[in-house]
Amino acid sequence: MSDNDNKPPVVFTAFPGGKLGPDAGAQVLKLHAKSAVRMQDVVGMAELKRTIRLRIVEPFQNPGLFARFRKKVGGGVMLYGPPGCGKTMIAKAVANECGATFVGVTLSDILDPFVGVSESNITEVFARARAHKPAVLFFDELDALAYARSKAGSSNARTRVNALLHELDGVDTQNDSVLVLAATNMPWDVDDAAKRPGRFDRLLFVPPPDVEARTQMMRNRLEGVPHAGVNVEAIAEATKFFSGADLDGLIETAKEFALDEIVSSGTERPLCQSDFQTALKDMEPSTMEWLRTAKNLVKYGGASRAYRDVADYLDREGL
């Protein structure tokens, strides 16, 4: 057991309450360990969790072992997959499991209309993470921040990517014990240079929740909601390729059907299977468009081995 296990994780956003400033450090938002997401909160996806444990969490928890093998702790990992499938939640859980400081960065934290300010914001984010080692620096929507320079319509976007690449390399500084995690729905829009060794060289595919995950999610979401005769397993089977967000939408629609009937009949009843069946008729998984695009990439685009996980998933699911 490492020392980190007893340390309550510190979670803060890069620029809480606004842009960087001399007092920005004073605004660090501290959360209690109990409220933080842990890996067991990420339901299902056993294979992905095993990979994350092996490749990301263990090096942080057993730094001695990895040091003996002269294996660097930290580096860059890019989580990619359809929207609404838990990439951000996984990133937070990773930070928690690692006992590391979590620094969450979004595009609006970095972006500034004044020339050069966005680049210095990037530098500052990395400096902050290095100052709180071990740290997990999490970039949401990496595709927006590290948008392929060959496609970028403005030179500002290009200089921003250059600044990010420079910090990822940590040429002037040390990125040891800083795990840089990123999430993106569109890995093909991320600059190729950002995916080279030493940067985001590990790509992890976060697929739509499997049947086990969907079952557990349904159970969790129905907790405390009056329901009777709902066959959660059957609904989970019928919602293949649904994202977590889609499942939330399904439950909300089912609730609306039930409430509509209650209001018009004046008789209260719990949520039942037929509400879900009616709701399901009008719903389509939002992940399909992403999966079709990914199929184009791996089946027609001759994508590199980095996308092998997606190719395996598509084959397995018969897409």
């Binding site: 972006l111 209309p113 595709d143 319509g153």
Partner: peptide, 19 residues
């Protein structure tokens, strides 16, 4: 609002018109 519009301009530059 200015910050949001600045992000909107950037999203157009990186071909994300929906956002």
């Amino acid at each position: 609002n200015a910050a949001v519009l600045s992000e909107a301009v950037y999203r157009l530059q990186i071909s994300q018109p929906e956002r």
